[in-house]
Write a protein that binds this DNA or RNA. Structure first.
Length: 419
RNA sequence: GUGGGCGUAGCUCAAUGGUAGAGCACCGGACUGUGGCUCCGGUGGUUGUGGGUUCGAAUCCCAUCGCCCACCCCA
């Protein structure tokens, strides 16, 4: 095999496209219902956009980005996540207009590139469906984004989604909390794993995220961020819960949800599903009230979610969700012998011009082979043209479901098929 | 990046050192101009690749590539 697809990437085969379409169309439909508008941004951006928004010290930026230089010496990076490019466009294209209080609601479907080691549910190119709501601090918007996500999961046929929520506070309470966290861990730091010892200096919040039993045990003694939130953040988190409660949305509060992107403030949440293996997160997001300003725009709060489409597809498969069978459609032109070929070929063109899906057998095989093919390919009708039909100026129309056949005069063929 | 498992026909898998097979799919026939059911027959493999051990390797050893799973991280 001379060429292979790059590691961690996938070809979406014709047989798989239907479920992709079903999921993508459902997402677009749900977004339209919640009044989010589609935004398409480039597949690559200035490297600096991701570095400064996601955070220099995150795994995504420090080891997973596909970064390259163009001929002008600019450093560019393949889309490593969805929020930063959306925020960039929000600012650059002035999507908010003059009304700086206006809520701008955007959605996207996009490939995302990260160079991890592939495994179940993890790819180097995956696809995310996401929404971003920019311009409101209202906790009802946090809940709306969560509600939209859950509606999407339900409408693609996924039951059993678990919602985990947390608040990571604002820069003020977060800084104060980080100090307390470090203090509580400090005297046992030498017992922790090398990663955590590094995190202690570079990104202490991530200490809470470590999966090692020893580290978990040590951090379990640490204060919860939820106890350290400032009044504003605590109130916002309470209000998010009140809004979720009002919608009857079940959730678990999990103070260990930190998320791997540095721009999050206040609300952070994650959707998981038990049908998946180790990579059980099927979506995640949160609030990022400082990001727009940090990227050079006017101070603007925001909240959003990213949903992994491959994982959604995996869950659907595990749950046995099936897409509707495609109905039989189209007309297959069966020609018998040389004299019927060109008339059949003309009919094929005529059918297509009239809007029918239509096909023919370029192998000139037996009628048996042609009908078998038409059956396998899901045609609704076969039109048989042989010596008899040509002589009589008719065509034989066979209904591929019932097997009924009728002789139809050539001039009336199209109207007969339409009826 | 670290560790483990697995690579045999288009697909799912047999064959444990001695002639590479089955089911499904595909093609043809029974049915000379009629698909689906049944029966019969057929096409299809440099056993991922390279090297080694052996009289003999799909099988054992080494290397390499690929895939899968876990760690890590995330969607």
């Amino acid at each position: 095999m001379r060429y292979r697809r790059p590691k961690g990437t996938h070809d979406v085969l014709p047989s798989e496209v239907r479920s992709w379409r079903a999921v993508e169309d459902t997402f677009a439909r749900v977004c339209a219902r919640y009044r989010y508008q589609e935004l398409r941004t480039p597949i690559f951006e200035d490297t600096d956009l991701f570095v400064r928004s996601v955070g220099e010290d995150t795994d995504i930026v420090s080891k997973e980005m596909y970064t390259f230089e163009d001929k002008g010496g600019r450093s560019l990076t393949l889309r490593a996540e969805g929020t930063a490019p959306t925020v960039r466009a929000f600012i650059e294209d002035n999507l908010q207009g003059q009304d700086r209080e206006r809520l701008v609601k955007l959605y996207y479907l996009t490939p995302v590139f990260r160079q991890d080691r592939p495994q179940a549910g993890r790819f180097r190119q995956h696809h995310q469906a996401g929404v971003e709501a920019l311009g409101s601090l209202d906790p009802g918007v946090d809940a709306e984004v969560i509600d939209l996500s859950l509606t999407f999961y339900r409408e693609v046929g996924i039951e059993g989604v678990r919602l985990l929520i947390n608040s990571v506070g604002c820069p003020n309470c977060m800084t104060a909390y980080v100090e307390k966290l470090k203090a509580s861990v400090a005297d046992r730091l030498d017992e922790m794993c090398p990663d955590c010892q590094r995190r202690y200096e570079t990104n202490p919040l991530r200490l809470l995220d470590c999966k090692r039993e020893r580290c978990r045990e040590i951090t379990s003694a640490a204060p919860s961020i939820l106890d350290e939130l400032c009044d504003q953040c605590a109130e916002h988190f309470a209000q998010v819960q009140a809004h979720l409660d009002a919608l009857g949305i079940a959730y678990e509060i999990n103070p260990r949800i930190v998320r791997g992107l540095d721009y999050y403030t206040k609300t952070a949440f994650e959707f998981t599903h038990d049908a998946l293996g180790a990579q059980d997160s099927i979506g995640g997001g949160g609030r990022y009230d400082g990001l727009v300003e940090q990227c050079g725009g006017p101070p603007t709060p925001g909240v959003g979610v990213g949903i992994g489409l491959e994982r959604v597809l995996l869950v659907r498969e595990a749950l046995g969700v099936s897409d509707e069978d495609e109905e039989r459609a189209g007309v297959f032109v069966v020609t018998l012998g040389d004299e019927a070929w060109l008339p059949g070929y003309q009919l094929l063109h005529e059918l297509r011009q009239a809007g029918f899906a239509a096909g023919i057998d370029y192998r000139h095989r037996s009628i048996r082979a042609q009908l078998r093919y038409a059956d396998n390919e899901g045609y609704a009708h076969a039109v048989i043209l042989g010596g008899d039909e040509i002589a009589k100026g008719v065509a034989t129309v066979r209904d591929m479901t019932s097997g009924e056949q009728t002789e139809v005069p050539r001039p009336k063929l199209l109207s007969h098929l339409e009826g």
